[in-house]
């Protein structure tokens, strides 16, 4: 399966399709960190929200780079389960690169401060919260991007619609007054928790919610791919 992951990552990078989401991500982070220094936990929580649509879009692009027939050739050689898993794994690896860039970026442009405020969290705790927020957003974004991929939607138009609705729904349903927040991945809730300083229970709840949402969305992707190859 690693060979197929490498082939798909190579296709994503060599065609230059990785450039657009990378630039979009850097642009969004530039706007985010343009207003001055913030505490790492707070800044990284919002960074995860900003990168969520970028990661989903990046996943869709990565999965759509490969021609349909090539995807089917890979399926015949590797088996259906491995073919699907390899695509998702390649998207996760690419997403980890984007997440790493998102975590390093504010230190390069002075978007975060290392000074600890009285009664505030330590620098390490703030960074750890940021890593947690991004890693919680990543599988949900990969699942959304996979559901928007051409293999599932069958057309570019439907794919963009799924992606846009998924991102807007995540932001809107994630508002603090939402009555059905659990329909969306907990990206917004995670950002609020990272800013406020979550308790252990909140961390566990949000982690469980994020994992459950991602697992459900990935199961939907796998189910749709049973008939759409």
């Amino acid at each position: 399966m690693s060979a197929l992951v490498r082939m798909r990552l190579a296709g994503f990078l060599r065609t230059g399709r990785a450039v657009a989401p990378l630039l979009a991500g850097l642009l969004a982070l530039g706007v985010l960190y343009g207003g001055g220094r913030a505490q790492p936990g707070e800044a990284y929580g919002v960074s995860a929200v900003v990168l969520f649509p970028v990661l989903a879009w990046q996943t869709k692009i990565l999965l759509d780079v490969e021609p349909d027939v090539q995807r089917r050739l890979a399926l015949v050689l590797a088996g259906a389960a491995r073919e699907r898993a390899a695509g998702l794994l390649a998207a996760v690896v690419a997403g980890l690169g984007t997440v790493a860039a998102g975590l390093v970026y504010p230190w390069l442009v002075g978007g975060v401060t290392s000074q600890v405020t009285p009664g505030g969290r330590s620098l390490a705790a703030g960074v750890a919260l940021g890593v947690w927020a991004h890693l919680l957003a990543l599988p949900a974004a990969v699942a959304l991007g996979a559901l928007a991929s051409r293999a599932v939607t069958g057309s570019a138009g439907y794919g963009v619609a799924v992606l846009a609705l998924g991102v807007v729904g995540t932001l809107v349903l994630g508002l603090s007054d939402s009555v059905i927040p659990w329909l969306a991945p907990p990206v917004m809730s995670t950002a609020r928790a990272a800013a406020a300083g979550p308790s252990g229970g909140t961390l566990a709840l949000l982690s469980g919610w994020g994992v459950a949402w991602s697992a459900t969305a990935l199961a939907a992707y796998a189910w749709r791919r049973r008939v759409r190859v």
Binding site: A3, G11, R14, V69, L73
Partner: peptide, 29 residues
């Protein structure tokens, strides 16, 4: 082990012949 030759080979890929075939050989196990 199934080998499938589609009617139209998908050429729209950023690989050389050797790199593509080497990759597919590894994908095949």
């Amino acid at each position: 082990h199934v080998g499938w030759v589609p009617e139209r080979f998908p050429v729209d890929q950023p690989f050389t012949v050797r790199r593509y075939l080497a990759g597919m050989a590894r994908v095949a196990g």
